[in-house]
Design a protein around this nucleic acid. Sequence first.
DNA 1: TCGTGGTTACAAAAAGGTGCGTAATTTACT
DNA 2: AGTAAATTACGCACCTTTTTGTAACCACGA
Lengths: 124, 124
Amino acid sequence: MKSLVSRCPIEEVMQVLSGRWPTLLIYYLKQGTKRFSDLRRDNPTISHKMLTLELRKLEDAGIVERTEFGGYPLRVEYQLTPAGHRLVPLIDALGEWWDTTSDTGAQSSPADTEPVIPNTVSRD
Amino acid sequence: MKSLVSRCPIEEVMQVLSGRWPTLLIYYLKQGTKRFSDLRRDNPTISHKMLTLELRKLEDAGIVERTEFGGYPLRVEYQLTPAGHRLVPLIDALGEWWDTTSDTGAQSSPADTEPVIPNTVSRD
DNA sequence: TCGTGGTTACAAAAAGGTGCGTAATTTACT
DNA sequence: AGTAAATTACGCACCTTTTTGTAACCACGA
């Protein structure tokens, strides 16, 4: 992982939220508790390795909580922590800012920005 | 540059703001107009290649405006656009969120989070 | 044998750094 | 006076580092 250049909170958050996946995962997790395989179905283009890595990162950042239910085919559930939930509106605000600034005419829903996932499914 | 996975504004903003530099550059630019060499002095660890690349990206995103004054030694000035200024508080909010969640005891300034740049200066 | 939620090793791709070249004018030195 | 060097904001080519993808493997129990 890239080391920090300054000791400022902004750079620290960005280190966690940077990249394609963190905000997407947060988006799906705000819908409620999800299992590993659920998240894979939600965004089919992430590799399982990336998914585990990103989930760990979000976990370490205190955004996501991992609950492991022991047993047979092994069940693990992921959900947003309270802090994670508090983060959601801030991210949404960024999305709305983007919508209003890069206003190329017609926009869709005002609040609750919704990712339209394509299906470039990569089987493995 | 990585292509988008979904067509959602959040992913689009994050594509612009992701990485170590965008937020740092915005931070320094909110202090006012800066020249290329000023920004290099502000954060000595960025290479000129990265700086131009990141500035272009911010320019394309409508966050930063580039003004070129002809003549030689050629002078160029960078400043936040109105949209860029509107973005600043949103980014600051993320910093504050981080501060309040990862609260490891003592914190510094409440608002106006300030990067403390180190001086691993690389001359070139 | 399959499915779950991983880990590990290796390969590919992307990001980033380094150094050189460039322009026209000023300043520095001889 | 004449030459040389420095200046500013890059672009380009090459090379290294980091990130991400791929595939194989593991455990367990149904």
